[in-house]
Design a binder for these strands. Structure first.
Lengths: 152, 152
DNA sequence: CTCCGATTGGCAGGATATGCCAAAATTGTA
DNA sequence: TACAATTTTGGCATATCCTGCCAATCGGAG
């Protein structure tokens, strides 16, 4: 993981479908060693995959919601059960554990408010053991990039 | 934006570098119309781009932070200035406006705590007009996907 | 200066993308 | 229901790109 690897990673974050030839040129390598570095980054798990960035509104999911959830009990079985169930919910694109009060923050995508009500009532509440739910709707997005900051 | 387009989108969210031939097979099309649909989705802005998914720890940015910021004044110039400055900060990968109290939520990536202190002191505070900052560190990530839920 | 390992560059064969045209399917209309 | 206009599809040929192999180069260590 040297400077050249970081250059490659950032170039592929900017455009994950650029040809290996263009990538090689962008990082001042010839195609062969460039491709080998990319394959190494993939095999070692630095590059976990590639994905299309899609406009959720155009796709039909105009409502993004950040949901913060706190559990009643923080014992192993309850935590495990909650996390396992959350992973299976398609509407949940992200779920992080935040330091502090054993809080979860979920990023949820739904087509309308009715779907969000369904999500809470039929997906979250049935899991059980939820102490509180705090809902924050995304009004608009000021910035969204997948390119990591350059290392200094 | 019919069902086939949605299938294409979700397949490319799962693997943004799959060949057009494989994609065509996955959505039951021949390569030609499949590629044309992809190009249309790109040209119409549904597919905004492609990016490599990179492990931030392996890259050297082990600390993810959600920062919630509230401004002192919500007038046009202050808001515009804040958003413009935030967009220029490399460490900020996301910035959303949350409904309710004109709050911002930022996703920030830094190598260590010192860098976060620098970020707050030298990037956020100099903007001015910030009333409060609430910091939540990500302890671990339970789920993270870029594939949208299927439409039902 | 010399040796050794790692990295690089170039080449050839195979796979993939892409533009074009005819065929098929779909939509709207009477 | 039948028909016509439009859209979408499938297949082919060419051009581009990927990828595995081998020799050449680079960078340290002794």
């Amino acid at each position: 993981m040297d400077q050249k690897d970081r250059d490659i990673v950032r170039a592929l974050q900017r455009n994950g479908r650029m040809t290996n030839q263009d990538l090689a040129e962008a990082v001042n390598l010839s195609p062969s060693p460039c491709l080998r570095r990319v394959r190494n980054l993939e095999a070692s798990g630095v590059i976990q995959g590639y994905s299309a960035d899609v406009d959720p509104v155009a796709y039909g999911l105009p409502i993004t919601i950040f949901v913060r959830i706190r559990l009643e009990r923080h014992n192993e079985p309850d935590v495990r059960k909650f996390e396992q169930r959350v992973r299976m919910i398609d509407e949940v694109l992200e779920c992080h554990i935040l330091t502090g009060a054993m809080d979860y923050q979920l990023r949820v995508l739904v087509p309308d408010l009715k779907a969000y009500e369904d999500f809470i009532r039929n997906r979250i509440h049935p899991i059980g053991g939820v102490a509180s739910i705090d809902t924050s709707f995304v009004y608009s997005t000021v910035k969204r990039t997948s390119v990591f900051p350059p290392p200094n």
